[in-house]
């Protein structure tokens, strides 16, 4: 099982849309895929029409009183399951902090799932916390949606800094441009500069599109209801690049 984290310190960067569409594309290719919605806002869970509710919450999960796989729900799509979000996840940091070796608790929870799935997509909450540190340590690759603005570039630098300091420099980082508006000069400028400074930047860029926003109305992955939309095609290119980069 390969583990992909979808993450940014900032919120509202198209993270959940990327997680949902990438997972959907993987499932279509036959990868048995599980999305774990770690964000207490439960956006991925909502997109799949699943009720956010994990009996016993994160506390029981981390303490090993319930198995992660008891909470897994099938989505409407073949090969694609979801471990729903739970409001209690907002306290996950505290629970993780109580446990022994807090930075490795997620890996431990995920181990039993590794036979049932080929790919695990972690939709992470924003900010740097114990939860995200856990994701960094468990993931084979970290996909970082980035809006091409000066501020986002600073955020990405901060993230790389954090990795340097926390012995995570080996993590496979895959920033890509998200919510791109090519009419904006700044977007164009940043999209030219960032790959020069950070060659790990992926080529595929997701345009800012109302199609993507409508996912919330249809509660369906974009690639499932309009596979030919420009943004859907961009997700396909993104997925192909991630596969090549991670060897999934």
């Amino acid at each position: 099982m390969k583990i992909l984290g979808i993450y940014n310190i900032k919120g509202g960067v198209g993270k959940t849309a990327a997680a949902v569409n990438l997972a959907y594309l993987a499932a279509c290719e036959g990868y048995r895929t599980l999305v774990w919605d770690l964000d207490p806002q439960a956006a991925a869970t909502y997109y799949f029409r699943i009720k956010p509710n994990v009996k016993g919450g994160s506390k029981k999960l981390i303490k090993g009183k319930t198995e992660a796989d008891e909470h897994i729900k099938g989505t409407d799509y073949e090969n694609l399951d979801l471990l729903p979000a739970d409001f209690s996840y907002r306290n996950m940091d505290l629970t993780l902090g109580d446990a022994k070796k807090p930075a490795q608790q997620l890996i431990k929870l995920l181990r039993p799932l590794s036979y049932a799935y080929d790919l695990l997509v972690l939709d992470c909450p924003p900010s740097i916390s114990l939860v995200s540190e856990n994701v960094f340590r468990a993931a084979d690759g970290l996909v970082v949606p980035t809006i091409p603005t000066t501020l986002s570039v600073r955020t990405y630098e901060q993230l790389k800094d954090f990795f340097q300091k926390h012995d995570l420099a080996g993590l496979n980082l895959m920033p890509f441009f998200s919510m791109v508006d090519r009419r904006k000069n700044m977007h164009q400028k940043v999209m030219q500069e960032l790959p020069e400074r950070f060659p790990e930047t992926l080529d595929a860029a997701i345009p800012y599109a109302s199609d993507v926003e409508r996912m919330g109305i249809y509660r369906t992955p974009l690639n499932a209801y309009d596979a030919h939309a420009p943004a859907a095609l961009a997700y396909e290119r993104l997925w192909a690049e991630i596969k090549a980069r991670t060897g999934i």
């Binding site: 279509c28 036959g30 048995r32 090969n79 080929d118």
Partner: peptide
Amino acid sequence: PPVTYPLPGEVPRFAWDLPPSP
């Protein structure tokens, strides 16, 4: 559960001719 793979063309004669996939 079943394992599926979208085929770009004909079924190849040998499994090793399939693209890497589950």
